[in-house]
Amino acid sequence: MAYSVVVVDDHVLLSQAIGSLVEAFDDFKVLYLCNNGQELIDKFESKENIPDVVLMDVNMPILNGIETTVYLKDHFPDVKVLALSIEEEENTILKMLRAGAKGYLMKDVKKAELNEALLEVINNGYYHTNTIARILVDSLRNKDTGIASLKEREIEFIKHACSEKTYREIADIMCLSPKTVEGYRDVLFEKLNLRNRTGLVIYAIKNKIFTP
């Protein structure tokens, strides 16, 4: 039995090319192509138009891939979404995966890997490349040591630590003893898995605690 696939991409020629690739796979057939998420949702009004897998672009007009994937997760949870995009930004990848996508591929993916990804999504429920797996792990690690876990005074200390002030000067500003400030420093280094003040500054910039 061939599994059904729908390609959603606003670039018509690229969408057709992807569809032709999928048609060449033994285990898959293309039901139809869509230009955007809204067009796909409209198609889903007929049961015969509901596929096993949707190959979803991210950046599209009217209704983008993230919004569409959220809708499908809520209304058609059995339909598996596999993102296929040129977007390499980690934040975009995470948004797509959190929306419900079962995997994320770049559009320059090789034919064999696309086939493997489709089979893995059907058989195992997901497909993650090593790069995507690393992004997910980093995301979980950052979540565990995120801003939400920091106390108000710790955030205040981090902001001061991003300046050229010495720890003694920071202690004066915060009306604390130098030893207490050093305690803040050591606790933060341990909590955020950092080794030095430079690492703390990088963390602050990355998490928008401090803007240089």
Rank of each mutant, 00 (worst) to 15 (best):
L136Q: 15
Y32A: 10
T211F: 14
D52E: 13
V7H: 02
L13M: 14
T198L: 05
I66T: 06
S15R: 15
V22H: 09
S177N: 00
H75A: 02
K43H: 12
V7M: 11
L13K: 12
A112P: 07
G65P: 08
T198V: 11
E90Q: 15
H11K: 15
D138R: 10
I170A: 03
I18V: 15
E113R: 14
A117G: 06
V79R: 02
K143T: 12
A83T: 08
K47G: 04
D74F: 01
N207A: 08
K43T: 01
E23I: 06
I132N: 08
D138C: 01
G125S: 10
D9V: 06
P178L: 09
N142Y: 12
R168Y: 10
L194K: 10
I66M: 03
I205Y: 01
F44A: 07
E169A: 11
R153M: 00
S46K: 14
E152G: 00
R153F: 04
K107N: 13
T69S: 14
F28A: 06
L114M: 13
H128K: 09
D78Q: 11
L136C: 09
A2M: 14
V181T: 14
P61F: 09
D26C: 03
V79P: 01
A161I: 08
L94A: 10
A83E: 00
L72N: 02
G37P: 06
V181S: 07
V22Q: 08
G19L: 03
K95P: 03
K165Y: 14
K151R: 15
T180G: 00
D108Q: 13
L55Y: 05
E39G: 08
C175S: 12
A112M: 14
K165H: 12
E120I: 03
R197E: 06
I135Q: 04
V81F: 03
R195A: 04
Y104H: 06
H11S: 15
I62M: 04
E45I: 12
K179D: 09
V5F: 06
D42Y: 08
I122A: 09
V22N: 01
R141W: 01
P61Y: 07
E169S: 12
D144R: 13
A101E: 04
V53K: 02
G199P: 05
A133S: 14
G65R: 08
I132F: 01
E156I: 04
V137T: 12
R153Y: 06
V137Y: 09
E113L: 14
L176T: 06
A204H: 06
I50A: 05
L82Y: 05
K95R: 15
D9A: 10
V30C: 04
I132M: 08
N49T: 04
D172V: 04
C162P: 05
L136R: 11
P77H: 12
S163T: 15
K165C: 05
V137K: 13
F28C: 03
V30E: 05
F44S: 05
A24Q: 08
F76T: 05
K206F: 00
N196R: 07
L140C: 06
A148E: 15
D74E: 14
D57F: 05
E87W: 02
L200S: 09
D27V: 01
L63C: 04
V7A: 10
T180H: 05
E67N: 12
T129W: 07
